[in-house]
Write a protein that binds this DNA or RNA. Sequence first.
DNA 1: GCTTGACTTAGACCGCGCTCGAACTCGCAG
DNA 2: CTGCGAGTTCGAGCGCGGTCTAAGTCAAGC
Lengths: 120, 120
Amino acid sequence: MTIAQVAERTGLTAHTLRYYERTGLLLEPPPRGGNGHRRYTDRDADWIRLLSRLRGTGMSIAGLRRYADLARRGEDTYAARKELLLAHRAEVVAKIEQLQDDLAHVDYKIEIYDKLMGER
Amino acid sequence: MTIAQVAERTGLTAHTLRYYERTGLLLEPPPRGGNGHRRYTDRDADWIRLLSRLRGTGMSIAGLRRYADLARRGEDTYAARKELLLAHRAEVVAKIEQLQDDLAHVDYKIEIYDKLMGER
DNA sequence: GCTTGACTTAGACCGCGCTCGAACTCGCAG
DNA sequence: CTGCGAGTTCGAGCGCGGTCTAAGTCAAGC
């Protein structure tokens, strides 16, 4: 699998994929074909999709790196990795609740405009 | 009301409040007391709280500025302001859905660790 | 009169997460 | 042989949203 294909499958750009690799988010640098191009496996793509989702939920690059570092250390770190995800999960849940709360205030403000305009 | 009190009530810092003012997010610059200090009204604080909530839901500073510009133009812009908030509302709803979707994948990953560890 | 603390300004600086540009190498089609 | 397209590296640059510093002013309390 080429970098362009991984880009397509993960929603990240090739630039970003190289950046993630540089900054230590991959379990290991993908091996190169004879032409020097990166060759990704499906497992690589799955890992990157997970990274992308964690980013999407607001985990920082530093957080991703901590997770990747644990993953690289093998099965001894299952518990630690689970803890990391659970802690992050809690943050996401809190963020969703905050969003819903803020949204309610926005809705309230929208209603006010309705009333000011006489429900036109 | 002093800047420190507004900071406390909005969760923003005094620095940030001045920055928001500089960048045109306030309806009008708060008037100064005899000592040159800003004096905010409750309405100011309410406006800033709204800004803060919109920021919390991901509206950009540029978006806030558009909203403030409309608000400054008076009641002719009620409809435009409502539209702006509705558009933003839709983005927030989409974001919440995305978060919930990503969260489901994180949960799935957590379960996998449970299984790998034999449900300890 | 002096210190303390809350405020003021202008402008520099920062951390994050990309994002891009320049210059290069390959492999392949025409 | 000549493009062309897809990849490569290194390093610089950027947009966002603050965040902070330095130097100053003022009021109140000791």
